[in-house]
């Protein structure tokens, strides 16, 4: 009897907590469907009287399809490049006998815990010196190079792969590349799912880097386009259209999050790997 009661109480607590944490997002959805006058009414209403879908058209016109395409190029570019760079490196560090392994591992780990936002200025200078400002190369390559997380994640996974399988393939004369491609990779789907979801979300949500490196309209990504609507840099766009823009910006990450939830959370929890 006591457990039933306490379970009920706990349930109520959990539901209230879920509601409070999700409230800002629910507000975003509700606000995105209010008319320009309705969002500026006093006292505010919780739900729109009639949903104004036009807000989404206006937000799309403001953000533009090009900006959304840029965001996909940016995020997928980072994920792809990091895969290309980190998979072979991680594999070599895990499975190929090599005397530099320890040194490389140690030097990769040290800067991993420095948040990117704090090393922006020097990184900007290097990108500037390379002549990469306002280009996709400048947007993608310097960020893709910060792949210590990817290397550690994949290496950890490769280390746990059974050695016998690889040894057999090597004795049969398979090259290391072949072993990586045909044996290690097919077994690494969980690690790949984790990495791709975490890396995609991180890249899609980046703001400051694309803002300083490629602010020009041709390379602008969605968060750079959206942010001015929070600081009131555009008095012609009503907050409801801004919220519709926020919904649009969240759709891709929401889909990735829902589909990859299990692996994503594993990856985020992995930031605890020390």
């Amino acid at each position: 009897m006591r457990t039933v009661l306490s379970n009920t109480a706990r349930y109520v607590g959990i539901v209230i907590g879920a509601f409070v944490l999700a409230l800002p997002l629910l507000f975003m959805v509700s606000g995105s469907l209010k008319s320009a006058t309705e969002i500026n009414t006093f006292p505010p209403k919780l739900l729109p009287t009639t949903p104004v879908w036009q807000n989404f058209a206006d937000a799309w016109n403001y953000l533009t399809g090009g900006v959304i395409a840029n965001s996909f190029v940016f995020a997928i570019g980072i994920v792809g490049l990091q895969l290309i760079i980190s998979l072979p490196a991680a594999f070599a560090l895990a499975k190929i006998p090599f005397k530099w392994t320890g040194v490389i591992m140690a030097s990769l780990v040290i800067p991993m815990f420095i948040p990117g936002n704090l090393t922006l200025i020097p990184l900007f200078i290097v990108t500037f010196q390379l002549g990469w400002l306002n280009s996709f190369a400048g947007l993608i390559i310097p960020m893709a190079a910060q792949c210590a997380f990817a290397i550690l994640l994949f290496r950890q996974f490769f280390v746990s792969l059974p050695g016998g399988l690889i040894e057999a393939a090597r004795i049969d004369g398979a090259s290391w590349l072949r072993v990586l491609w045909s044996i290690a990779l097919p077994l690494s789907r969980p690690a790949l799912a984790t990495f791709c979801s975490v890396s995609f979300l991180t890249a899609w949500n980046m703001y400051i880097w694309p803002q300083i490196v490629a602010p020009d309209p041709a390379h602008r990504v969605i968060n750079v386009a959206l942010a001015p609507l929070a600081g009131g840099e555009n008095s012609l766009i009503s907050p409801s259209v801004g919220l519709a823009g926020a919904v649009i910006a969240m759709v891709p990450v929401l889909i990735v999050f829902i589909v990859f939830q299990k692996w994503y959370i594993k990856g985020v929890a992995g930031t605890g790997l020390e």
Partner: peptide, 11 residues
């Protein structure tokens, strides 16, 4: 993202 959160919380 920070931008999305900012738009929401500014409102």
């Amino acid at each position: 993202s920070a931008a999305v959160a900012s738009v929401i919380w500014a409102a």
